[in-house]
Design a protein around this nucleic acid. Structure first.
Lengths: 120, 120
DNA sequence: ACCCTCACTTACCAAAAGGTGTGTACTGCA
DNA sequence: TGCAGTACACACCTTTTGGTAAGTGAGGGT
């Protein structure tokens, strides 16, 4: 109930998968968490150039609800929250591999630019 | 320039692929055209339960612009327009296979309903 | 004393996506 | 004569999505 209901009736598997990965930052979060294993909120924020805090929280919560992301809170001061992928998150990321390859090929074909990720 | 500019700078391949498949009906159109090879406008409309004419035209035009769909107009009366997939459309559909399988598994896991497609 | 960091929350806004309903030019069918 | 089918275009409206800016509360650095 955070944002929208979702998990409505689906036409097919792709529909159901898209319901879960659509969202401007979700595939990036998936990639980032798969790369590093575990990341804290601020680390993710710095890893995704241009994301706002609100959007990052929102997408992470939805992914948690959808069973892709595990969220662990440590009752410390200053607060510490660690995010990681669940098994479903990992398998989704793998299922996205072919799509990623297709997209990379397309980028080359049409000569589109990639976002320059700042080194810092 | 039909709706939005798109093909902007991308973060990665998935981003680029999503730019092209996002849209409520695009993956369904891809599937439908892959199944039948060639389809006319009204056939697609009947094949996608719930789509409006406006949305169908819009999605088809974007997919044509993106080089996924081939559109052939026959100057007859009544008008006849045939849609089919290009090579890129076919390969995109294949790249979506793993995602579709993941989604199908997810539907079973969470026990979501599928849209009942009327037989007529 | 003051700002920075952590991980958020809340209120408000703008843009994009999607939906509805109508019009069109022509033909075939009853 | 009147209605259905063909493949749309156009105007208007609602919903969804994303973005901006501010606030929170405790601790640590300078």
């Amino acid at each position: 109930m955070a944002t929208t209901a979702r998990r409505g009736p689906y036409f097919c598997g792709i529909d159901a998968a898209m319901d879960v990965v659509s969202g401007k930052w979700k595939s990036l979060i998936l990639w980032e968490l798969d790369q590093y294993g575990v990341r804290r909120f601020a680390q993710l924020r710095r890893g995704l150039p241009g994301v706002s805090e609100k959007m990052l929280v929102q997408q992470l919560r939805e992914m948690e609800e959808d069973g892709l992301v595990h969220r662990e809170v440590f009752p410390e001061v200053p607060p510490r929250v660690e995010y990681s992928l669940t098994g479903h998150g990992v398998s989704l990321n793998h299922a996205l591999a072919a799509l990623g390859a297709w997209g990379t090929e397309r980028i080359q074909r049409i000569g589109a630019e990639k976002v320059a990720v700042p080194v810092a």
